[in-house]
Protein backbone atom coordinates (compact mmCIF):
# COMPACT_ATOMS: atom_id res chain seq x y z
CA UNK A 1 0.00 0.00 0.00
CA UNK A 2 1.44 3.37 -1.09
CA UNK A 3 1.01 6.42 1.16
CA UNK A 4 -0.13 9.86 0.10
CA UNK A 5 -0.55 13.17 1.93
CA UNK A 6 -2.69 16.11 0.77
CA UNK A 7 -2.20 19.82 1.45
CA UNK A 8 -5.25 22.14 1.44
CA UNK A 9 -6.07 25.62 2.72
CA UNK A 10 -8.26 26.69 5.64
CA UNK A 11 -11.32 27.03 3.48
CA UNK A 12 -11.25 23.54 1.98
CA UNK A 13 -9.94 22.26 5.32
CA UNK A 14 -13.30 23.32 6.78
CA UNK A 15 -11.67 25.67 9.31
CA UNK A 16 -13.34 28.74 7.88
CA UNK A 17 -13.27 31.41 5.20
CA UNK A 18 -11.29 34.62 4.89
CA UNK A 19 -11.55 35.26 8.66
CA UNK A 20 -9.51 32.10 9.28
CA UNK A 21 -6.86 32.80 6.63
CA UNK A 22 -4.24 33.26 9.34
CA UNK A 23 -4.76 29.69 10.55
CA UNK A 24 -1.40 28.14 11.48
CA UNK A 25 -0.50 24.77 9.90
CA UNK A 26 -2.02 21.63 11.33
CA UNK A 27 -1.81 18.00 10.29
CA UNK A 28 -4.81 15.73 10.70
CA UNK A 29 -4.91 11.99 10.41
CA UNK A 30 -7.15 10.74 7.64
CA UNK A 31 -9.30 12.60 5.19
CA UNK A 32 -10.54 16.19 5.35
CA UNK A 33 -12.62 17.93 2.64
CA UNK A 34 -11.29 17.29 -0.90
CA UNK A 35 -9.19 14.41 0.46
CA UNK A 36 -12.31 12.25 0.34
CA UNK A 37 -12.79 12.71 -3.39
CA UNK A 38 -9.06 12.30 -3.97
CA UNK A 39 -9.06 9.04 -1.99
CA UNK A 40 -12.00 7.79 -4.02
CA UNK A 41 -10.17 8.54 -7.26
CA UNK A 42 -6.87 7.09 -6.07
CA UNK A 43 -8.50 3.72 -5.43
CA UNK A 44 -7.39 0.99 -3.09
CA UNK A 45 -3.67 0.85 -3.73
CA UNK A 46 -2.89 4.34 -2.44
CA UNK A 47 -3.94 5.55 0.99
CA UNK A 48 -4.14 9.20 1.99
CA UNK A 49 -2.86 8.93 5.55
CA UNK A 50 -2.97 12.61 6.50
CA UNK A 51 -4.33 15.98 5.45
CA UNK A 52 -2.28 19.13 6.09
CA UNK A 53 -4.22 22.37 6.49
CA UNK A 54 -2.82 25.88 6.53
CA UNK A 55 -4.35 29.35 6.19
CA UNK A 56 -3.48 31.08 2.90
CA UNK A 57 -2.45 34.31 4.60
CA UNK A 58 -0.40 32.47 7.17
CA UNK A 59 1.53 30.76 4.37
CA UNK A 60 1.78 34.03 2.48
CA UNK A 61 3.19 36.13 5.31
CA UNK A 62 5.16 33.48 7.23
CA UNK A 63 6.24 31.31 4.33
CA UNK A 64 9.48 30.02 5.76
CA UNK A 65 7.99 29.25 9.16
CA UNK A 66 4.93 27.59 7.64
CA UNK A 67 7.00 25.46 5.31
CA UNK A 68 9.37 24.43 8.12
CA UNK A 69 6.49 23.52 10.40
CA UNK A 70 4.85 21.39 7.74
CA UNK A 71 8.12 19.71 6.75
CA UNK A 72 8.47 18.97 10.48
CA UNK A 73 5.03 17.32 10.50
CA UNK A 74 6.03 15.17 7.54
CA UNK A 75 9.46 14.07 8.66
CA UNK A 76 8.31 10.94 10.50
CA UNK A 77 5.56 10.05 8.01
CA UNK A 78 5.75 7.59 5.17
CA UNK A 79 5.24 9.49 1.91
CA UNK A 80 5.24 8.03 -1.58
CA UNK A 81 3.44 10.92 -3.20
CA UNK A 82 2.29 14.41 -2.20
CA UNK A 83 -0.74 16.31 -3.45
CA UNK A 84 -1.59 20.00 -3.01
CA UNK A 85 -4.87 21.67 -3.96
CA UNK A 86 -6.50 21.87 -6.48
CA UNK A 87 -6.19 25.63 -6.17
CA UNK A 88 -8.30 26.73 -9.18
CA UNK A 89 -7.82 30.46 -9.75
CA UNK A 90 -7.14 31.33 -6.09
CA UNK A 91 -3.77 33.09 -6.23
CA UNK A 92 -2.74 32.86 -2.59
CA UNK A 93 -3.82 29.21 -2.43
CA UNK A 94 -1.92 28.39 -5.64
CA UNK A 95 1.21 30.03 -4.38
CA UNK A 96 0.87 28.19 -1.05
CA UNK A 97 0.52 24.85 -2.87
CA UNK A 98 3.64 25.75 -4.85
CA UNK A 99 5.72 26.74 -1.83
CA UNK A 100 4.94 23.61 0.12
CA UNK A 101 5.07 21.39 -2.97
CA UNK A 102 8.51 22.63 -3.93
CA UNK A 103 9.80 22.15 -0.36
CA UNK A 104 8.42 18.60 -0.17
CA UNK A 105 9.95 17.75 -3.54
CA UNK A 106 13.34 19.06 -2.47
CA UNK A 107 13.26 17.49 1.00
CA UNK A 108 11.76 14.08 0.30
CA UNK A 109 12.18 13.73 -3.47
CA UNK A 110 8.69 12.31 -3.99
CA UNK A 111 6.36 13.24 -6.85
CA UNK A 112 4.30 16.35 -6.07
CA UNK A 113 1.08 17.00 -7.96
CA UNK A 114 -1.12 20.06 -7.90
CA UNK A 115 -3.70 21.68 -10.14
CA UNK A 116 -4.30 25.32 -10.94
CA UNK A 117 -6.09 27.44 -13.47
CA UNK A 118 -3.85 29.02 -16.10
CA UNK A 119 -4.48 32.47 -14.62
CA UNK A 120 -3.28 31.43 -11.20
CA UNK A 121 0.07 33.20 -10.58
CA UNK A 122 1.26 30.02 -8.84
CA UNK A 123 1.58 28.39 -12.27
CA UNK A 124 4.43 30.61 -13.47
CA UNK A 125 6.06 30.63 -10.04
CA UNK A 126 6.19 26.87 -9.55
CA UNK A 127 5.63 25.03 -12.83
CA UNK A 128 9.33 24.22 -13.06
CA UNK A 129 9.34 22.54 -9.68
CA UNK A 130 6.22 20.39 -9.45
CA UNK A 131 3.54 18.89 -11.67
CA UNK A 132 0.74 21.46 -11.94
CA UNK A 133 -2.24 20.21 -13.91
CA UNK A 134 -4.37 22.56 -15.97
CA UNK A 135 -7.39 23.12 -13.75
CA UNK A 136 -10.73 24.88 -13.68
CA UNK A 137 -11.44 28.45 -12.62
CA UNK A 138 -13.44 27.61 -9.52
CA UNK A 139 -14.37 24.85 -7.09
CA UNK A 140 -17.05 23.77 -9.55
CA UNK A 141 -14.18 21.95 -11.32
CA UNK A 142 -13.15 20.16 -8.12
CA UNK A 143 -14.09 16.65 -9.17
CA UNK A 144 -12.60 16.99 -12.65
CA UNK A 145 -9.35 18.51 -11.40
CA UNK A 146 -8.92 15.92 -8.67
CA UNK A 147 -9.54 13.14 -11.16
CA UNK A 148 -6.61 14.32 -13.32
CA UNK A 149 -4.29 14.63 -10.32
CA UNK A 150 -5.25 11.20 -9.00
CA UNK A 151 -4.97 9.46 -12.33
CA UNK A 152 -1.48 10.83 -12.96
CA UNK A 153 -0.39 10.01 -9.41
CA UNK A 154 -1.58 6.43 -9.80
CA UNK A 155 0.35 6.08 -13.04
CA UNK A 156 3.55 7.49 -11.56
CA UNK A 157 3.43 5.09 -8.62
CA UNK A 158 2.70 2.17 -10.94
CA UNK A 159 5.80 3.06 -12.94
CA UNK A 160 3.86 3.67 -16.17
CA UNK A 161 5.55 5.42 -19.06
CA UNK A 162 4.55 9.05 -18.78
CA UNK A 163 3.77 11.29 -21.72
CA UNK A 164 4.93 14.84 -22.36
CA UNK A 165 3.44 17.80 -20.51
CA UNK A 166 0.97 18.48 -23.31
CA UNK A 167 -0.06 14.84 -23.60
CA UNK A 168 -0.59 14.51 -19.85
CA UNK A 169 -2.19 17.92 -19.33
CA UNK A 170 0.20 19.62 -16.92
CA UNK A 171 2.13 22.84 -17.43
CA UNK A 172 5.56 22.05 -18.94
CA UNK A 173 8.39 22.09 -16.39
CA UNK A 174 10.99 23.35 -18.86
CA UNK A 175 12.52 19.88 -19.19
CA UNK A 176 13.10 18.88 -22.82
CA UNK A 177 13.75 15.22 -23.57
CA UNK A 178 13.88 13.05 -26.65
CA UNK A 179 10.98 10.75 -27.45
CA UNK A 180 10.27 8.36 -30.30
CA UNK A 181 7.20 9.36 -32.26
CA UNK A 182 4.45 6.77 -32.27
CA UNK A 183 3.59 5.98 -35.02
CA UNK A 184 7.10 6.74 -36.29
CA UNK A 185 7.41 9.68 -38.67
CA UNK A 186 10.85 10.40 -40.06
CA UNK A 187 12.47 13.80 -39.72
CA UNK A 188 12.56 14.06 -43.53
CA UNK A 189 8.76 13.64 -43.68
CA UNK A 190 8.28 16.16 -40.89
CA UNK A 191 10.51 18.69 -42.65
CA UNK A 192 8.50 18.43 -45.88
CA UNK A 193 5.21 18.74 -44.01
CA UNK A 194 6.39 21.81 -42.09
CA UNK A 195 8.01 23.39 -45.15
CA UNK A 196 4.87 23.07 -47.27
CA UNK A 197 2.76 24.54 -44.48
CA UNK A 198 5.18 27.42 -44.04
CA UNK A 199 5.30 28.08 -47.80
CA UNK A 200 1.51 28.08 -48.08
CA UNK A 201 0.98 30.18 -44.98
CA UNK A 202 -0.76 27.42 -43.06
CA UNK A 203 -0.27 27.06 -39.30
CA UNK A 204 2.49 24.71 -38.17
CA UNK A 205 4.08 23.79 -34.88
CA UNK A 206 7.84 24.10 -34.54
CA UNK A 207 9.49 21.29 -32.60
CA UNK A 208 11.81 23.75 -30.89
CA UNK A 209 9.92 26.75 -29.53
CA UNK A 210 12.28 29.68 -28.93
CA UNK A 211 12.12 30.54 -25.20
CA UNK A 212 12.02 34.11 -23.91
CA UNK A 213 15.31 35.50 -22.71
CA UNK A 214 15.81 36.09 -19.02
CA UNK A 215 18.21 38.89 -18.08
CA UNK A 216 19.99 39.87 -14.87
CA UNK A 217 20.55 43.46 -13.76
CA UNK A 218 23.91 44.91 -14.76
CA UNK A 219 26.32 45.07 -11.81
CA UNK A 220 27.61 48.45 -10.59
CA UNK A 221 30.72 49.36 -12.61
CA UNK A 222 34.19 49.55 -11.02
CA UNK A 223 34.88 53.12 -9.89
CA UNK A 224 38.68 53.07 -9.77
CA UNK A 225 40.27 50.40 -11.92
CA UNK A 226 43.77 51.26 -10.68
CA UNK A 227 42.83 49.97 -7.25
CA UNK A 228 40.73 47.04 -8.42
CA UNK A 229 41.51 43.36 -8.01
CA UNK A 230 40.59 41.52 -11.21
CA UNK A 231 40.06 37.77 -11.55
CA UNK A 232 40.27 35.68 -14.71
CA UNK A 233 37.66 32.98 -15.23
CA UNK A 234 37.52 30.74 -18.29
CA UNK A 235 35.30 28.04 -19.77
CA UNK A 236 38.17 27.15 -22.12
CA UNK A 237 39.48 24.29 -19.98
CA UNK A 238 42.97 25.66 -19.20
CA UNK A 239 44.43 23.54 -16.38
CA UNK A 240 47.84 22.40 -15.10
CA UNK A 241 48.99 19.62 -17.44
CA UNK A 242 48.11 16.86 -14.96
CA UNK A 243 44.52 18.21 -14.64
CA UNK A 244 44.56 17.82 -10.83
CA UNK A 245 40.82 18.42 -10.42
CA UNK A 246 39.96 15.91 -13.14
CA UNK A 247 37.76 18.43 -14.91
CA UNK A 248 35.83 16.66 -17.67
CA UNK A 249 36.59 17.65 -21.24
CA UNK A 250 32.84 17.88 -22.03
CA UNK A 251 29.69 18.09 -19.89
CA UNK A 252 31.80 19.34 -17.01
CA UNK A 253 30.59 19.23 -13.43
CA UNK A 254 33.91 20.27 -11.90
CA UNK A 255 35.96 23.47 -11.85
CA UNK A 256 39.42 24.30 -10.60
CA UNK A 257 41.28 27.29 -9.18
CA UNK A 258 44.96 27.55 -9.89
CA UNK A 259 47.56 29.64 -8.09
CA UNK A 260 49.23 32.17 -10.37
CA UNK A 261 50.55 34.49 -7.67
CA UNK A 262 54.18 33.79 -8.67
CA UNK A 263 53.53 33.39 -12.37
CA UNK A 264 54.12 36.00 -15.02
CA UNK A 265 52.64 34.11 -17.93
CA UNK A 266 51.18 30.63 -18.48
CA UNK A 267 53.84 28.41 -20.00
CA UNK A 268 53.12 25.55 -22.41
CA UNK A 269 53.77 22.07 -20.93
CA UNK A 270 52.85 23.57 -17.54
CA UNK A 271 49.30 24.46 -18.54
CA UNK A 272 47.15 23.05 -21.35
CA UNK A 273 43.50 22.90 -22.38
CA UNK A 274 41.37 19.84 -21.79
CA UNK A 275 38.38 21.27 -23.69
CA UNK A 276 37.27 18.71 -26.28
CA UNK A 277 35.13 21.03 -28.36
CA UNK A 278 37.88 22.62 -30.44
CA UNK A 279 41.35 22.08 -31.85
CA UNK A 280 43.59 22.42 -28.77
CA UNK A 281 46.89 23.01 -30.60
CA UNK A 282 47.04 26.80 -30.32
CA UNK A 283 46.09 26.93 -26.64
CA UNK A 284 48.52 24.14 -25.75
CA UNK A 285 51.35 26.00 -27.46
CA UNK A 286 50.49 29.22 -25.65
CA UNK A 287 47.83 29.02 -22.90
CA UNK A 288 47.84 32.84 -22.67
CA UNK A 289 45.63 32.93 -25.78
CA UNK A 290 42.82 31.74 -23.47
CA UNK A 291 43.99 32.91 -20.03
CA UNK A 292 45.72 36.21 -20.87
CA UNK A 293 47.86 36.35 -17.75
CA UNK A 294 50.84 37.89 -19.57
CA UNK A 295 48.97 41.06 -20.56
CA UNK A 296 47.16 41.22 -17.22
CA UNK A 297 50.57 41.35 -15.49
CA UNK A 298 51.56 44.15 -17.84
CA UNK A 299 48.42 46.11 -16.93
CA UNK A 300 49.28 45.48 -13.28
CA UNK A 301 52.80 46.85 -13.76
CA UNK A 302 51.47 49.88 -15.63
CA UNK A 303 49.04 50.55 -12.82
CA UNK A 304 45.98 50.30 -15.06
CA UNK A 305 44.61 47.73 -12.62
CA UNK A 306 45.37 47.31 -8.96
CA UNK A 307 46.09 43.61 -8.86
CA UNK A 308 45.54 40.35 -10.69
CA UNK A 309 43.75 37.95 -8.33
CA UNK A 310 46.11 35.21 -7.11
CA UNK A 311 44.06 32.44 -8.71
CA UNK A 312 42.39 31.90 -12.03
CA UNK A 313 39.29 29.74 -12.34
CA UNK A 314 38.68 27.19 -15.06
CA UNK A 315 36.09 24.77 -16.30
CA UNK A 316 34.84 23.45 -19.64
CA UNK A 317 31.84 24.98 -21.35
CA UNK A 318 30.99 22.40 -23.97
CA UNK A 319 27.88 20.34 -23.23
CA UNK A 320 27.77 21.66 -19.68
CA UNK A 321 24.21 22.16 -18.46
CA UNK A 322 23.06 25.61 -17.46
CA UNK A 323 22.19 24.16 -14.08
CA UNK A 324 25.73 22.83 -13.55
CA UNK A 325 27.31 26.00 -14.91
CA UNK A 326 25.20 28.10 -12.54
CA UNK A 327 26.12 25.89 -9.57
CA UNK A 328 29.83 26.07 -10.39
CA UNK A 329 29.56 29.84 -10.85
CA UNK A 330 27.88 30.21 -7.44
CA UNK A 331 30.72 28.23 -5.86
CA UNK A 332 33.27 30.41 -7.64
CA UNK A 333 31.38 33.55 -6.51
CA UNK A 334 31.86 32.59 -2.85
CA UNK A 335 35.59 32.39 -3.47
CA UNK A 336 35.66 35.68 -5.37
CA UNK A 337 33.75 37.44 -2.60
CA UNK A 338 36.02 36.01 0.11
CA UNK A 339 39.01 37.38 -1.79
CA UNK A 340 37.35 40.79 -2.34
CA UNK A 341 37.60 40.54 -6.10
CA UNK A 342 36.27 43.73 -7.73
CA UNK A 343 35.73 42.54 -11.28
CA UNK A 344 35.90 39.49 -13.51
CA UNK A 345 37.06 38.86 -17.05
CA UNK A 346 35.49 35.69 -18.38
CA UNK A 347 37.02 34.22 -21.50
CA UNK A 348 34.88 31.71 -23.34
CA UNK A 349 35.85 29.49 -26.23
Amino acid sequence: MKKAILYINQFFGQIGGEEEADFAPEIKEGLVGPAMELQKQLGEDIEITHTVICGDNYMGSNTEEAVNTIIGFLEDKEIDIFFAGPAFRAGRYGSACGHIGKAVKEKFDVPVISSMNEENPGVEMFREHIYIFKGGASAAAMRKDIKKMAEFGRRILKGDTLGSADEEGYYGRGIRRQVWLEPPITAADRVIDMLLKKIHGEPFQTELPIPDQDMVPIAEPIKDLSKAKIAIVTSGGIVPVDNPDRIQSASATRWGKYDISDTDRLEPKVFKTIHAGFDPAAANNDPNVIVPLDVMREFEREGKIGKVHDYFYSTVGTGTTEGEAARMAREIVVDLQDANVDGVILIST
Binding site: L162, S164, G174, R177, V179, P184, A187, R190, L208
Partner: peptide
Protein backbone atom coordinates in the same frame (compact mmCIF):
# COMPACT_ATOMS: atom_id res chain seq x y z
CA UNK B 1 15.92 9.09 -40.68
CA UNK B 2 15.26 10.13 -37.11
CA UNK B 3 11.84 9.24 -35.75
CA UNK B 4 12.83 10.95 -32.52
CA UNK B 5 11.69 14.40 -31.55
CA UNK B 6 11.93 16.57 -28.44
CA UNK B 7 9.05 17.22 -26.09
CA UNK B 8 8.66 19.23 -22.93
CA UNK B 9 7.99 17.36 -19.69
Amino acid sequence: WSTKTMKEF
